[in-house]
Simulated assay, not measured.
Amino acid sequence: MAAPQVKSSSELTMAVLGCGTMGIAILSGILSSLTSLASSPSDPPTSPPALPRHFIATVRSSSSITKVESALSGLVKPNVSTLRVLQSTSNVSAVAEADIILLGCKPYMVSGLLSASGMKDALTVNHKEGHARSQKIIISICAGVTVPQLEQILREDVGVSADDLPIVVRAMPNTASKIRESMTVINTVEPPLPDSVTELLTWIFEQIGEVAFLPPSLMDACTSLCASGTAFFALMMEAAADGGVAMGIPRAEATKMAAQTMRGAAGLVLDGEHPAILREKVSTPGGCTIGGLLVLEDEGVRGAVAKAVREATVVASLLGSGQKNVNGTRH
């Protein structure tokens, strides 16, 4: 089978099936970036030669159509991008037209969505006039659904042959996609993706934050650290704010101070400062910081946070294997 390639056309079509909060965030980032690229045509190109410029979002209800259009229509610019929002009854036609298919539906809906009548032909043939037959890219952001599971559905339930199998990728953005501060982890595959596909995937998810490529064996740990981690850090932020409130700081100001302090610490680390060095720099001998840090160490905060990441990793793995009520039976 020939190595899969992204089409040479500079205008790809991307369909988002099940365009909820995450789908809206991803499309918002892409549409805004396309407008920026168009407004600076003289800048050196830093993006792939072929980018998604035409978008189809499918949703389940007319009220959802209104929601998506309200969120995104202002970002669509003439001669730069197009957007159509359709009901999910149009999934098959959307896939037929698309070069890139983003699965944003609930995990339990994946099999039924891909097994819809006519989906096999839609997935294996590019119907756009003037474009040669080409392998499509399926990007799943469905929690717990692995690449082998998706490929099995495509082969056994949809009936796609091995030669016609689309490129299947699993990506895991997080809640901060909404403000373009996501940490997206993309599942590497064997054999490796073509460079053109890797470049395209990187560009898509860099529009909502940072991107890392890691092997499938680490995806559950990444789910814990990047997705569940948002809640873990929120709890620590809330606890810090509570401490400030206990000492007389008004709630609103305490919350803002805690959030900004956490943002500042994160910014310093992302700028190259090691967390341990940062901690040492702030801890002057005999000062208040070292006193507070010793309380945190005495209370086992370091171990508790690390254990929470490990526990969430195990739970994610069990949920991904189909087990239910995992948290209620593990202890």
Rank of each mutant, 00 (worst) to 15 (best):
6 V>C: 10
7 K>C: 13
12 L>Q: 12
13 T>C: 11
14 M>Y: 06
14 M>D: 02
16 V>C: 13
18 G>T: 04
21 T>H: 10
21 T>D: 03
22 M>A: 05
23 G>Q: 07
26 I>T: 06
29 G>L: 08
29 G>A: 14
33 S>D: 14
33 S>R: 15
38 A>G: 12
45 P>A: 10
49 P>C: 06
49 P>T: 11
51 L>G: 15
52 P>S: 12
56 I>M: 13
56 I>N: 13
56 I>E: 05
58 T>C: 14
58 T>G: 11
60 R>L: 10
61 S>T: 14
62 S>E: 12
68 V>S: 09
68 V>I: 00
72 L>Q: 12
78 P>I: 14
82 T>V: 07
85 V>L: 06
86 L>N: 07
87 Q>T: 15
96 A>H: 06
96 A>R: 12
99 D>P: 05
105 C>F: 02
111 S>T: 08
111 S>M: 01
112 G>M: 04
115 S>G: 07
117 S>H: 01
119 M>D: 09
120 K>P: 00
121 D>I: 07
122 A>Q: 10
127 H>Y: 01
130 G>I: 05
132 A>V: 09
133 R>W: 03
135 Q>K: 15
136 K>M: 03
136 K>P: 01
137 I>F: 06
139 I>S: 05
141 I>M: 10
143 A>D: 09
145 V>K: 07
146 T>G: 09
146 T>E: 08
149 Q>W: 02
150 L>S: 03
150 L>M: 07
150 L>Q: 02
150 L>W: 00
154 L>S: 06
160 V>S: 01
160 V>N: 02
164 D>N: 13
172 M>F: 10
174 N>C: 04
177 S>D: 01
177 S>R: 09
177 S>L: 11
178 K>L: 13
188 T>L: 13
189 V>I: 13
190 E>C: 12
192 P>I: 02
193 L>D: 04
194 P>Y: 10
196 S>F: 00
197 V>H: 11
200 L>N: 08
204 I>H: 07
205 F>D: 11
213 F>Y: 15
215 P>G: 12
215 P>D: 10
217 S>Y: 05
218 L>M: 08
220 D>Y: 06
220 D>I: 03
222 C>P: 02
226 C>R: 02
227 A>I: 08
231 A>Q: 02
236 M>E: 10
238 E>W: 03
239 A>C: 12
241 A>K: 08
250 P>G: 08
255 T>Y: 06
255 T>G: 03
255 T>R: 10
255 T>W: 00
256 K>G: 04
257 M>E: 04
260 Q>K: 02
262 M>G: 02
264 G>Q: 04
268 L>S: 11
269 V>Q: 10
269 V>D: 12
269 V>W: 06
271 D>F: 01
274 H>I: 12
277 I>N: 09
278 L>P: 01
287 G>T: 01
292 G>F: 04
292 G>T: 01
293 L>S: 11
298 D>V: 04
299 E>M: 10
300 G>V: 03
300 G>K: 09
301 V>W: 03
302 R>G: 11
307 K>H: 07
315 V>I: 14
318 L>H: 13
321 S>H: 05
324 K>G: 01
327 N>P: 01
328 G>Y: 03
330 R>Q: 08
